[in-house]
Design a binder for these strands. Structure first.
Lengths: 118, 118
DNA sequence: ACGACGTTTTGACATCTGTCGATATGTTAG
DNA sequence: CTAACATATCGACAGATGTCAAAACGTCGT
């Protein structure tokens, strides 16, 4: 019910993170920023992101996540795919496992959008 | 509600913005951060915040907002109250008008939580 | 080819959310 | 007090969201 999904968005030009809050956002800018914030605005997804962000190796196998956030595997898969679609995570298939990495630039861009409002 | 609270609960404990994403968040931290992010993760609310943030005087009368975001007065009132509850905005009643100011520290704290994850 | 295993998709469901019209509450002016 | 106005709350409703079980899809080792 959203848009046709494209699993990976490599060529995506980093359209992210709306300008800031130093001047009124128009509807389009607000929707874009809201989309990324919505992806982050869930306790389970925040925990997933933080777990991946804190990983020594910088990446985490999807197989380890369900137990860590106490949700079923399909639920975790759903959350992960939302985070990927929002550009917060990067997914890499390696054999039969899926590995996820944090896209720090993306997250930083969102953070900047908020910080630079003051 | 569930857990015993600290003996002294200051009026406004500023519990905000969860730690960061440099170490895995526990459920409580994740919920707190998610609450603030949820308050921001809506296009209309982002526009309200940006309008108020951009105001010369630093504050905006609620009476001006419905037309600016193209929503009815009850809807705007609802969004504003969510933002106040989340600690993003400050409300001051002045005569029969309600004025809103941005709580920049709060917003900055959320931004930091995201930026400091990388 | 087969079976085992990891992941995604589907279908279903309860809950939450954004929105509005109608109404209630509150504040000021006369 | 009353009228007029600003804001909040209520009730309702469509649509989105989080969750799971079940089934489909992919990838590997045998």
């Amino acid at each position: 019910m959203f848009f046709v999904n494209d699993a990976t968005v490599p060529p995506e030009p980093e359209p992210c993170c709306a300008p800031l809050l130093r001047s009124p956002l128009d509807e389009h800018q607000a929707s874009e920023l809201a989309d990324v914030l919505k992806a982050l605005a869930d306790p389970v997804r925040l925990r997933l992101v933080s777990i991946i962000a804190a990983a020594e190796s910088g990446e985490v196998c999807a197989c380890d996540l369900p137990v860590l956030v106490d949700r079923t595997q399909p639920t975790v898969s759903h959350h992960l795919s939302l985070l990927v679609r929002a550009g917060v995570l990067e997914r890499e298939q390696r054999g039969k496992w899926a590995w996820f990495r944090l896209r720090r630039e993306r997250l930083a861009a969102v953070g900047d959008a908020l910080v630079n409002s003051g």
